[in-house]
Amino acid sequence: MTSYPKPQKTLILGATSAIAQETAKLLAQHHHHLFLIARDPQKLAIVAQDLQVRGASQIHTATFDLNQFEHHDALFTQVTTQLQGIDIVLIAHGSLPDQHACEQDYSTAEAALRTNFLSTLSLLTKLANYMQNQGHGCLAVISSVAGDRARQSNYIYGTAKGALNLYLQGLRNRLHRNHICVLTIKPGFVDTPMTQHFKKGLLWAQPQQIAHGIVQAIEKRKDIVYLPWFWQIIMLVIKTIPEPIFKRLKL
């Protein structure tokens, strides 16, 4: 089943998230050499054990809370020393903030931006430079369709993801000449622990579907991918609604 001559070296941040887990399962089947980072050591051990059985050629793990930016340097050093080169980075951590709480309290809104945008900026600063020197690789980041247009029901999350999209756009432009692929992943509604309190309807996808899309997009060196594909059409429609009308909608 090996589709690569050498095992790819892949770093996954937020490795216990549902989408990251399913993506990592596919990569493990292709015998990737994995470095997994997550907050909870017990959950991380469950995921690492699973990926070992599924065929990962080698697995390293480290427990970090990515909200503690002061530890990002230590994380970077540990990863680069142990992996000796990185082919793929998948950034999958994040949280869905309580929109209402964010509206009442700035520190809650700020925390949401730190988790969903600034932590990635901090991590990618070093990782992007590392890849630039290396001259190859892929930076795949899970954003969201929520970043395409902000709406009243979750615009703090949308702001963070929108900022993330712009940042990745710039980074992609900068690193293109260095043969680095920067992939912005925009999932729609996904049935994960993060969304367990939502009522699920027709538009909802399983994390397995999203994972297949991510692996395909990485292989095809895509720039932006909507998952599942129909979200590209939905968001196209939503983005074309003129603001004078959009502001009246209850979305």
Binding site: V47, Q49, D50, V53
Partner: peptide
Amino acid sequence: ALNHFLQF
């Protein structure tokens, strides 16, 4: 979601 392998 309890779909992890433990050993084979």
